[in-house]
Design a protein around this nucleic acid. Structure first.
Lengths: 161, 161
DNA sequence: ATAAAGAGTACCGAACTGGTCCCCTTTTCC
DNA sequence: GGAAAAGGGGACCAGTTCGGTACTCTTTAT
């Protein structure tokens, strides 16, 4: 099904939340704790924390440790795209194989005409994902949508076809 | 990592093999048994058989039962694209969610602006895959490449980035 | 000094995936 | 007509991955 992992899904939701937070209170400075973010997005706190750490290591978020610490976007929402988020959480965006960890390279790589097709495919996918900024994602999503009190968190993705 | 399942990978390899077979002996009529195909592509016979059945049900292959039966492409190689193959084996091509089997629909679907973004993304991915025909894939791949005698089957995909 | 918060890491259970097996039906060929 | 070849359709198993949790350590504000 070529599906996005839940980690990446959650990551995008949280980043989107932070983008909205920032916009609501002009520019940076005010951070949100993992707790707050988890509550606002209805993502299990421990999970949220784990993912936020990863996003931080990928330099998509800035963190502040200690009491009253928290997270905030490392850059402007318009300068962060979903491809980056997915890559930070799920690894390289590619309809994989070949790069089997370790040995790696395809012995007839140079000869393989299929290779260019796969590169084309992978490239197209990456481009599509790189074309959506966090700002686009954040645009006018009703807050009620992010936290669907009581029941399961509402999914924001929609299958096509 | 957004990876292709092995099923789909195998499927593409076998379809590519059949495309080459057909081209080698002008037009249809001559079928290959699951056994032959498995041997030629170095895919475990039982696996190959399972996948061929699926491809047949998806009407990408035509089958002939009974002794001297086998499989052949249902259409011309130029008229089959990788998107179809992947969809037949892995289900709808989409960076998923929402369609959780059963209940399914996103309660605020109509309001969700993110939805159009995901559709855009999914569409781009599908387009990229639909743009590669089996004929493209089959083009001049040396047969030695399909069966890498002795060792593991060589992977035809190549990661990008 | 204490409490709040992030950093890091180990761990568990459930689901999915790759892979195998078995039995049934169809068809050919002797 | 019967045996063998081949596909059709499942059930089933095992290993890996993934979602999720827990625990300990470091940092920092009050």
């Amino acid at each position: 099904m070529i599906r996005l992992s839940k980690i990446a899904d959650y990551g995008i939701v949280m980043m989107t939340h932070l983008a909205r937070e920032r916009r609501a209170s002009g520019e940076d400075g005010n951070q949100s704790s993992a707790h707050e973010i988890a509550a606002a997005t209805a993502i299990p706190p421990a999970m949220a924390s784990k993912i936020l750490k990863l996003l931080c290591k990928a330099e998509l978020l800035r963190s502040q440790r200690g009491a009253r610490g928290g997270y905030e976007l490392a850059r402007d929402a318009g300068a962060i795209d979903v491809a980056e988020i997915i890559q930070a959480l799920d690894g390289p965006i590619a309809i994989t194989a070949c790069v089997e960890d370790g040995d790696g390279d395809c012995c007839i790589e140079a000869l393989c005409p299929a290779r260019t097709n796969w590169q084309k495919i992978n490239g197209a996918i990456r481009d599509a994902l790189a074309d959506i900024s966090l700002e686009d994602m954040a645009q006018s999503i009703p807050e009620a949508f992010m936290l669907d009190a009581g029941q399961e968190r509402t999914r924001i993705e929609k299958v096509v076809e």
